[in-house]
């Protein structure tokens, strides 16, 4: 008879052995993955930390004013000043660098992969189930292999954030490009576009609202994960909360929590504003703002509706 207390399949030790084997034999690979993340993280964090806090707050305020308007700018400035006064400024900057690093890497990986998926049904066929699994797996679970393969600390934390945050960007890029009106594609071909021109002149600009919607999702996931990775020793606001909980210091934990919420709201507003921009406000101005208008053109809401419709039709 089967004894419930007995382990018949020693999966735990198998996985242990497998991961150890991978860690042993592929160490250079993981080192080389770690290196750019490490460099990027340090560069961003270093820059943010040497900038005087008030200057940084002013810069963020201006960015918010330019992207999203007066209300968001006011909210951003007030929140950041509040964070500064709470004494969690450097922790906030670390979290911000973690997110910024993750976004840069996610864009560098996610958009090309999304483009690949949009162009090749085979690639999408392979990647789609992987993304499904990745997105249904609780982010907590990612910590295990990351610790085994990359160790503990802020840089492995950044790796975990990247892994969690990249799927929506791949998905949205894929759907955005596949959703481009067939007649526009035909127009491109009919006027003699090369494959590359078709991508850059027609597909990417048309898919951009959807891709930016995906970027918004990626930023929010990165925000959430940047807190969770405190458990594998990543510094930042998450660590403040974790330390507070560990010492039963509810006040400290709450301060960390407030910082996290404020950061999340600011990031969400800013990335949504990027995705929502109305090209008409800028059409016909200087070339740079014109380029931005094109870059951020199109209706985000429309894209979302389209996206939902296409998702509905697939299920």
């Amino acid at each position: 008879m089967l004894d419930p207390d007995q382990v018949y399949i020693p999966l735990a030790s198998w996985i242990q052995i497998a991961i150890e084997w991978i860690a042993d034999h592929f160490r250079p690979l993981f080192r080389s993955i770690r290196w750019p993340v490490d460099e990027l993280l340090n560069a961003i964090n270093g820059t943010l930390e040497v900038t005087p806090p008030l200057l940084l707050i002013a810069l963020f305020g201006l960015l918010a004013l330019w992207l999203a308007g007066r209300r968001t700018a006011l909210f951003t400035v007030v929140s950041l000043v509040f964070i500064l006064l709470l004494g969690i400024w450097y922790e906030t900057l670390t979290t911000l660098s973690l997110i910024a690093t993750a976004i840069v890497v996610c864009v560098a990986i996610g958009i090309p992969l999304g483009i690949l998926c949009a162009r090749s049904d085979r690639a999408w066929g392979i990647l789609r189930p992987i993304l499904d699994v990745m997105q249904t797996t609780p982010s907590f679970v990612y910590l295990i292999p990351v610790v085994m393969l990359f160790g503990v600390g802020t840089v492995p934390g950044a790796v975990a954030v990247i892994v969690v945050a990249v799927p929506p960007l791949i998905r949205f890029t894929n759907i955005g490009i596949r959703g481009v009106d067939q007649e526009l594609i035909e127009a491109g071909i009919a006027f003699g576009a090369t494959e590359r021109q078709l991508l850059w002149e027609i597909q990417l600009p048309q898919a951009l609202p959807t891709i930016l919607g995906g970027l918004n999702q990626t930023v929010l996931l990165a925000m959430v994960m940047s807190v969770i990775v405190a458990m594998i020793g990543a510094e930042g606001l998450g660590l403040v909360v974790l330390q507070g909980l560990g010492r039963l210091d509810v006040g400290r934990a709450a301060v960390g929590g407030i910082g996290i919420v404020l950061m999340a709201i600011i990031l969400d507003r800013l990335t949504q504003a990027v995705a929502d921009r109305d090209p008409r406000a800028r059409a016909g101005q200087s070339r740079i703002s014109g380029a931005f208008a094109r870059l951020f053109g199109g209706g985000h809401r429309r894209a979302e509706a389209r996206l939902e419709a296409s998702l509905d039709s697939k299920t």
């Binding site: 009106d181 007649e183 526009l184 035909e186 127009a187 071909i189 009919a190 006027f191 003699g192 576009a193 090369t194 027609i202 600009p205 048309q206 090209p279 059409a283 016909g284 208008a293 094109r294 053109g297 199109g298």
Partner: peptide, 23 residues
């Protein structure tokens, strides 16, 4: 073929096929 499409044969589409975010 691209050269022909660029210089000899052009096309007008039923639903216009204009890029909505370009002037």
């Amino acid at each position: 073929m691209r050269d022909l499409r660029r210089r000899r044969i052009s096309m007008v589409f039923q639903n216009f096929g204009l890029l909505p975010n370009q002037t």
